[in-house]
């Protein structure tokens, strides 16, 4: 998009945040507009699912997480211009590694602590459940 040096070549890597296709002005704004539209739609859907009785109760967390992942994807593609193209290989690989570490930390912590609670609380289960409410 912007600030590319004079000899720009389509085989070159793209900096994260730079739109590789080289659109500028109105065409670049259109990408942001589309991203805003999708993000607003997903946000409204999230608040609606959480607030109204539109989804089967126990399914609400799964629906909210799916909407959040979708919105993060929209932000990455339309605002940060991360693509699956060859010029973005390095950016995508770094992102994939980051996501791996995030998932390990979050899921690992929740998993281990749930087992700790289950195994170590010297308390009957119904009382434990009461405490958790």
């Amino acid at each position: 998009m912007s600030g590319h040096d004079e000899h720009w070549n389509e085989h070159d890597d793209a900096a994260p945040g730079d739109e590789h296709a080289g659109g500028s002005g109105w065409s670049a704004i259109q990408v942001y507009l589309l991203g805003l539209l999708l993000a607003v739609g997903l946000t409204v859907a999230s608040f609606w699912v959480a607030g109204a009785n539109v989804v089967w109760g126990p399914g609400i967390p799964a629906a909210l997480l799916a909407l959040a992942v979708a919105q993060i994807g929209v932000h990455l593609v339309f605002f940060l211009h991360i693509t699956s193209g060859p010029e973005n290989t390095n950016n995508t690989l770094a992102l994939a590694f980051g996501v791996l570490v995030v998932l390990l930390v979050v899921i690992g912590s929740v998993w281990i602590m749930a087992h700790m609670m289950h195994n170590m609380m010297p308390m009957p289960m119904d009382k434990l459940m009461q405490m958790q409410r």
Binding site: A14, A15, G17, D18
Partner: peptide, 15 residues
């Protein structure tokens, strides 16, 4: 190009 190096380095920081 320096722009790619700087952007990538900052991308690593953000991650």
């Amino acid at each position: 190009p320096k722009r790619v190096i700087v952007g990538y380095g900052f991308w690593i920081f953000l991650l």
